[in-house]
C-alpha cells in the first residue's frame, strides 16, 4: 500500500490546531495546563523512583552458584 504524505496539509493542520489552542477560552487552556502538570509530575515521580529504587543486580551470564559441579 502506497502512502502519499502531503506535508503542506500536515503543516496546515498543525498550524490550525495551534491556533485553536491559542485562541481557546482561558478556562479550557487552564484545564489543559492542569492535565499537563499532572502528567509532568507523574513522569518526574516515576523517574525519581527509578533512580532511587533498590535494584537487584542480575548475575553475569553463565554464572553458576556451585562451582564444583
Amino acid at each position: 500500500m502506497k502512502h502519499n504524505f502531503d506535508f503542506e496539509r500536515i503543516w496546515e493542520s498543525k498550524r490550525a490546531l495551534r491556533e485553536r489552542l491559542t485562541t481557546a477560552p482561558i478556562i479550557e487552556k487552564l484545564r489543559m495546563l492542569d492535565a499537563l502538570h499532572e502528567r509532568a509530575a507523574a513522569i518526574r515521580g516515576a523517574r525519581f523512583r527509578e533512580a532511587t529504587a533498590v535494584q537487584e543486580k542480575p548475575g553475569g551470564y553463565g554464572d553458576r552458584k556451585d562451582k564444583t559441579s
Binding site: 489552542l21 491559542t22 482561558i26 487552564l30 495546563l33 499537563l36 502538570h37 502528567r39 509532568a40 509530575a41
Partner: peptide, 15 residues
C-alpha cells in the same frame, strides 16, 4: 512564567 503566558498562548507543560 508559563502559567501567565497561557493567558495569551497555547498551553505548555510546566512544573
Amino acid at each position: 512564567g508559563a502559567v501567565g503566558a497561557t493567558f495569551y498562548l497555547e498551553p505548555v507543560s510546566t512544573l
